[in-house]
């Protein structure tokens, strides 16, 4: 029994899952409405799907020892580009392709800055956070862009507002992405190389792995997942605002850290990121249901991050104790 317990505690995402269940129980006691299917899927899951989707790419970068502060700007930028292509009268496919390409471009610039110009990831992506938000504002002169209500526009809107068996489309995309990236991270050589890169970069280079290439791939993936989140967010909102997803990077990174992704690299799991984002979603929903003012959310989120970090330290000590 003790052995089983310690096994459970050592599963990297066990802590955040326990936290998630505890907070969910608390919220369901506060409001009977919380545990209704409509609330769980339509409000909670939908709310955290953007953070989780962008969080998967963010987590990959962080596991690889980097950091991407530009995800919020990449979300806004890619959503805006997709909306502009639709507004120009083009069909859905080119709009989605352009939006994804916009996100990949942000990631490409980040990767280049980190590998070729050897900038610290924090600095590099802080710069691109500003640069791409500025470009987003600049190209539309601060105006909102609303996709036309033609066939393409309707199909685009369905990406954000549609549902399959009550599950909103963005939630389906989130789960699909989680599965694909989970397999990539845990069952391919690429995934191991990501963990190796974040765990010991010098050793990884000495073993002959192409570190520059790996980092480029990671930042581009992060740009791409941010683009998926940004496009879905824009589709849901029905209009592209130049300040869309502003400040989301903090929620995205918070979700990843709560989910057990290490800021120093080499550690983290995608189920953890999913549960971490879900925890943020439940907290946000719980605050609304409890009738508290929204500004308490920041306080509670901060406390949860602190608790998650403390739990992680405890978990690592336990792992050492068990090995000794």
């Amino acid at each position: 029994m003790r052995r089983l317990l310690s096994e459970i505690v050592l599963v990297p995402w066990a802590g955040v899952l326990i936290g998630l269940l505890a907070v969910a129980t608390l919220v369901s006691l506060i409001s009977p409405y919380f545990l209704t299917l409509g609330n769980i899927l339509g409000n909670v899951a939908l709310y955290f799907s953007w953070f989780a989707i962008a969080g998967f790419g963010e987590a990959l970068v962080m596991i690889g020892g980097g950091l991407d502060l530009s995800v919020g700007s990449a979300m806004g930028f890619s959503g805006m580009i997709a909306a502009l292509v639709l507004a120009a009268g083009l069909p859905l496919a080119p709009a989605l392709a352009a939006g994804l390409a916009a996100g990949a471009l942000v990631g490409f610039v980040n990767g280049l800055a980190v590998t070729r110009f050897r900038l610290n990831p924090f600095i590099a992506t802080l710069a691109t956070l500003g640069i791409f938000r500025g470009i987003t504002y600049g190209i539309v002169q601060g105006q909102a862009i609303t996709p036309p209500s033609n066939t393409a526009g309707a199909a685009f809107a369905a990406l954000g507002t549609g549902a399959l068996a009550h599950v909103p489309a963005p939630v389906i995309v989130m789960l699909g992405l989680a599965l694909v990236l989970f397999i990539a991270l845990n069952h391919t050589p690429f995934g191991r190389h990501v963990y190796a890169l974040g765990g010991n970069e010098a050793a990884t280079r000495l073993l002959g792995l192409d570190i520059t290439h790996l980092k480029m791939v990671l930042y581009i993936l992060s740009g791409l997942t941010a683009a998926v989140g940004g496009i879905l967010l824009t589709a849901r909102a029905g209009t592209a605002l130049p300040d869309a997803a502003q400040g989301y990077e903090l929620q995205v990174i918070a979700g990843a850290i709560i989910g057990g992704v290490s800021l120093t690299g080499g550690q983290g799991t995608l189920p953890g990121v999913l549960f971490g984002a879900a925890l943020l979603g439940v907290i946000s929903n719980g605050i609304v249901l409890a009738g508290l003012a929204g500004y308490w959310q920041q306080l509670i989120t901060g406390l949860v991050i602190a608790a998650a970090a403390a739990l992680d330290v405890l978990r690592q000590r336990l792992a050492y104790l068990r090995a000794a």
Partner: peptide
């Protein structure tokens, strides 16, 4: 190499 070229979390 001297600096233990292993990855601790793998």
């Amino acid at each position: 190499y001297q600096d233990l070229a292993v990855v601790p979390w793998l």
